[in-house]
């Protein structure tokens, strides 16, 4: 009788433990769709990832919705790009989320054991020499759009793996295993993409916003100017006239429009200069069929090559 009782208790305890394990998935909030993808890959079944910004949004203008507050309130970790790129929404959300694992911070955006900053170890480009609003909406720590650089994917993945391991050290080996598998896939893609972009090296281009520095570094494209007068400051007629002149003088044949920006102005510029337009995404899911970091990076490169009249080979 006693043995049967013990067996029943052990079965119940086993079931309860299994149920607890099933519910123990880390609640992770990621600020952008490509971070949702990479965190899901690295975390696997051990994490439940929710996103904030939609790919079609301008990351500088994401509206901090109260529904985001409830996600952050109950999260174990928040994965973010950092370098103040999420300044419009992450600090005000963390300010009211009441989550002791992640608090708002004026410099690092987020401080606490649940903060996973993906910018650690990124070779940051375009650090401003002069911090003044007269220079537009600057990011004091440098250009934060490294998520557009395909070769920064491994750094993002490593940061996420390290962050998840810190939050849930019991599953460190699982995260590292997932990371290894993901990096193998990414490395193969990077090798392929490096071959693709060789014809772009040295080609001159302009973009709407100054968010293509990392894409430029990977492709070899030389971005000479932007449609915006200064970062975050809308184009003016005088600036556009000067840009037309500059593009003609420098032989710029490519206009890169991030999908969230005005298409008419780019079209006008293309008509004035004869340059071709490549529409790219600034985040995953910005364009159809780009829900993962790999698909997003690949689509951007294909669109650049197509507009430049080159074939991926």
């Amino acid at each position: 009788m006693e043995t049967i009782m013990k067996t029943k208790i052990s079965i119940i305890l086993t079931l309860l433990t299994a149920a607890a394990d099933a519910q123990a998935a880390l609640r992770v909030v990621a600020t952008t769709p490509e971070l949702v993808d990479i965190a899901s890959r690295v975390g696997g079944s051990l994490v439940e990832v929710q996103g904030l910004a939609k790919g079609t949004e301008d990351i500088h203008q994401v509206v901090p919705r109260p529904s985001f507050v409830t996600k952050l309130n109950r999260a174990d970790a928040v994965v973010y790009l950092g370098l103040t790129i999420e300044h419009a929404f992450l600090p005000p959300l963390l300010d009211v989320a009441r989550n002791p694992k992640m608090r708002t911070d004026a410099v690092k955006e987020c401080v606490g054991p649940g903060c996973i900053d993906c910018s650690e170890g990124v070779s940051v480009l375009e650090k401003p020499e002069n911090l003044s609003r007269a220079e537009g909406e600057l990011h004091p720590q440098g250009n934060p759009h490294y998520n557009a650089g395909p070769d920064d994917g491994p750094i993002i993945a490593r940061n996420i793996a390290a962050g998840l391991s810190r939050v849930d050290p019991a599953h460190k080996a699982d995260f590292e295993k997932n990371l290894k598998a993901y990096l193998a896939e990414l490395d193969a893609k990077l090798a392929l993409w490096r071959r693709w972009v060789k014809p772009l090296k040295g080609m001159k281009a302009v973009s709407y916003h100054k968010d293509v520095a990392y894409l430029g570094r990977f492709t070899g494209l030389e971005f000479v100017d932007t449609l915006e007068l200064k970062p975050g400051v809308a184009p003016t007629p005088t600036h556009l006239e000067q840009l037309v002149k500059e593009m003609k003088e420098q032989g710029v044949r490519l206009i890169v429009r991030e999908q969230q920006y005005d298409s008419k102005m780019c079209q006008w510029l293309a008509e004035q200069t004869g340059a071709k337009i490549a529409v790219i995404g600034s985040m995953a899911n910005a364009l159809p069929g780009t829900e993962t970091f790999v698909k997003y990076s690949e689509k951007n490169l294909k669109d650049l090559l197509e507009a430049a009249g080159k074939d991926p080979s």
Partner: peptide
């Protein structure tokens, strides 16, 4: 990496309010 990740504020005024 430490230098690149270092916060912009490094002076004695780092603790001053916004």
């Amino acid at each position: 990496n430490k230098l690149e990740g270092a916060p912009a504020k490094t002076s004695l005024s780092a603790f001053n309010p916004a």
